[in-house]
Design a protein around this nucleic acid. Structure first.
Length: 308
DNA sequence: AAAACTAGCAACCGCCAGATC
DNA sequence: AGATCTGGCGGTTGCTAGTTT
């Protein structure tokens, strides 16, 4: 048995609010407040609306000092940096912006700000082809018995944004000095390091963007890996041939899709090398995936920028 | 001029956590 | 202790207006 609905769904009005309904709701709350009970409120004032709907209307539209549209540059920056740090916790973000509602910020982010920052890029299908249901894999998956480590789409987006945001804020420093690169939690590094292998294991036209390194290349690492796990490699090759990995050149003067991740990798190149030689290249453990939930908790506990 | 497409946004839905019974 | 209720939240939907073909 499910829980009882908060109102009689068959007897409530849905859709846009009329000026009359707005006036009734506003007048009542101005005079008596919400009374601490939204469910009972519509009955008291003769509105055929769900209590939740009343609450939403009040919070997002009718309450005093609400601002709509016209987001400033400063607000953009706050939204972006908070999104990078804490993700889509719109109510928390809204709390930092007086007069803004979580719904407004969410809409603004989804329709404008995200595009502004990320540009119209193809969504990076870094890790998986579409599955047979037509959905893209977001968490870890099994491919021929081999686990392909992933970042969640939210975490990856935040990572990309972080890189992009930094490059916008201080491009010279960003590209010349490793200091501003975030120090990552070990598990963040581990997740990203897995991406590096996937990228390096195929010819990358983004390679020209990578700083020259005298150290072991991705292909060297891949060779070791291949020797240890042929099945894994075969899957990588297959997916690369299928175009699963998006490695586009910088044809429009835009930052390539995975540039951010590559740059991120450069920060931790040494630890990556150490990690590869000590762990993966020896044992190639493909049986203990990092759970999707862990990805999120890592980013929550150690927001990007941790350890700066 | 009209159909098709796209973007923006208000509102709804379902889930979750805390409070109360 | 468990069931129920309510508020709060984030994701998603669907309507509308504007733009493109």
């Amino acid at each position: 048995m499910g829980r009882a609905p908060c109102c009689d769904k068959t007897n409530v009005k849905k859709g846009p609010w009329s000026p009359d309904e707005d006036a009734k709701l506003k007048a009542y709350i101005d005079q008596f407040g919400t009374g601490g009970n939204w469910i009972a409120l519509p009955q008291k004032i003769g509105l055929k609306r769900c209590g939740k709907s009343c609450r939403l209307r009040w919070l997002n539209y009718l309450r005093p000092n609400i601002k709509h549209g016209g987001f400033t540059e400063e607000e953009d920056n706050i939204i972006c940096s908070l999104y990078i740090s804490i993700g889509s916790r719109w109510s928390i973000i809204a709390a930092q912006l007086p007069g803004r509602t979580d719904n407004d910020i969410k809409n603004y982010w989804n329709t404008k700000l995200k595009k502004k920052l990320l540009g119209r890029r193809k969504q990076p299908g870094l890790y998986h082809q579409k599955d047979d249901k037509g959905t893209t894999g977001d968490g870890g998956s099994s491919c021929g018995g081999s686990y392909i480590p992933t970042l969640s789409s939210s975490a990856l987006e935040r990572l990309q944004l972080h890189m992009q945001f930094q490059s916008i804020q201080n491009p010279l420093l960003y590209f010349s000095d490793p200091t501003p690169w975030p120090k990552l939690h070990p598990q963040q590094e581990k997740m990203i390091q897995n991406l590096q292998f996937l990228n390096d294991s195929i010819e990358s036209t983004t390679s020209t963007f990578l700083p020259q390194s005298p150290q072991q290349t991705g292909h060297d690492i891949a060779s070791t890996m291949i020797a240890k796990d042929g099945a894994y490699n075969a899957e990588m090759q297959k997916q690369a041939e299928l175009g699963d990995f998006i490695l586009t050149s910088n044809s429009n003067g835009e930052i390539p899709d995975q540039f951010d991740t590559f740059r991120e990798m450069d920060v931790s190149k040494e630890s990556m090398m150490s990690w590869w030689s000590n762990e993966l290249s020896c044992s190639c453990d493909t049986t203990t995936p990092v759970a999707e939930s862990d990805h999120e908790s890592v980013f929550q506990d150690y927001p990007l920028g941790y350890g700066w």
